[in-house]
């Protein structure tokens, strides 16, 4: 068999070209890359500890010593935003991986194995009918202390929030994946593979999964935005990370109380959340167009 990378070389170049035509997508990808690099490399350039109080400069406005200002304990907001970004982005990425993984697993299982299709799709319907935000709140409230006690506060809450977001957001992915698997599995090349004695597992990994990659990639991109917003919403409602553990949502909700006196405390974390979500959404939009063979090669919008 030929090297799949070499065979699909032209395809990937097409996709890249279409993606590059989509100005919004290029802008989104660039912005997202900048945010990730900034959050990862930022602490190397700005080595102020995010939890070091500076009582001489409490609630200070933006200055040379504290470019983003400080909070009520004089902690540097820039350092907190950088540290919070790493947590928020990791929550977003981890929850996305979990939800896309679960969704793909359920979708492929339902699409490939006829017997599982009915029960799995009823399960998906059931999850779609659950009131997700209330349930998320309930889950976090119920398991926070138990998990904190067993694996430590910060790891516990990180795991809890990632798992809670993951298990409540896999359903759309499962539905899309199942629909695509159903159409791919009837194609001739799957029949040919089966006729030549390929095992079920290998048919799934070699023939079906590569062909349903595009909806998975798009869902994954948009899933990051969804997870970051959900994490921030939980923190905002007081059921997310604890106060001394900076995430963008936590910083924002801590700052809202002081909005009228010290608006920068809301501005910076809010700006970072919005820019991240916006860039990811633009990227997802562009990827959807680029990966859709019906749209590829047409004049790009924007």
């Amino acid at each position: 068999m030929a090297d799949p990378l070499r065979v699909s070389h032209g395809l990937w170049r097409d996709i890249l070209r279409q993606f590059m035509h989509h100005k919004g997508a290029v802008f989104g990808a660039g912005l997202f890359a900048a945010i990730v690099i900034g959050v990862l490399a930022g602490p190397l350039l700005w080595d102020v500890a995010p939890d070091a109080p500076d009582f001489s400069a409490r609630n200070a406005g933006p200055s040379a010593a504290h470019p983003f200002g400080t909070d009520q304990l004089g902690r540097d907001l820039l350092a907190q935003v950088l540290a919070g970004g790493r947590i928020s982005l990791s929550v977003g990425l981890a929850a996305m991986v979990l939800s896309v993984g679960l969704g793909t697993l359920v979708g492929v299982a339902a699409g490939v194995f006829r017997r599982l299709d009915g029960p799995l799709m009823r399960l998906t319907d059931l999850f779609l009918s659950l009131p997700l935000l209330p349930l998320l709140l309930v889950i976090v409230m119920l398991f926070r202390e138990a998990l904190s006690a067993s694996v430590g506060t910060n790891t516990g809450i990180f795991l809890l929030i990632v798992i809670a977001i993951g298990v409540t957001s896999w359903m759309p992915v499962a539905r899309i994946v199942r629909a695509d698997v159903l159409s791919v599995r009837e194609r001739e090349f799957v029949l040919a593979a089966r006729a030549s004695g390929t095992t079920q597992m290998r048919i799934i990994t070699r023939h079906i999964l590569p062909n349903i990659l595009s909806p998975i990639v798009v869902s994954a991109t948009l899933g990051i935005a969804n997870a970051i917003i959900t994490e921030s919403a939980l923190s905002f409602l007081g059921l997310g990370f604890p106060s001394d553990f900076p995430t963008w949502g936590r910083l924002l909700s801590d700052g809202v109380v002081y909005l009228s006196e010290f608006p920068w405390r809301v501005f910076w974390p809010g700006l970072m959340i919005s820019l991240t979500v916006l860039s990811v959404n633009f990227m997802g939009d562009g990827l959807r167009d680029a990966l859709d063979p019906r749209l590829r090669g047409r004049a790009a919008p924007l």
Binding site: A225, A233, L252, L259, S274, V277
Partner: peptide
């Protein structure tokens, strides 16, 4: 797109 990306816990306090 911007309206969709701005979470209500940010737009709410800002509008207030």
């Amino acid at each position: 797109m911007v309206g969709y990306s701005l979470p209500p816990f940010l737009t709410g306090p800002l509008i207030i």
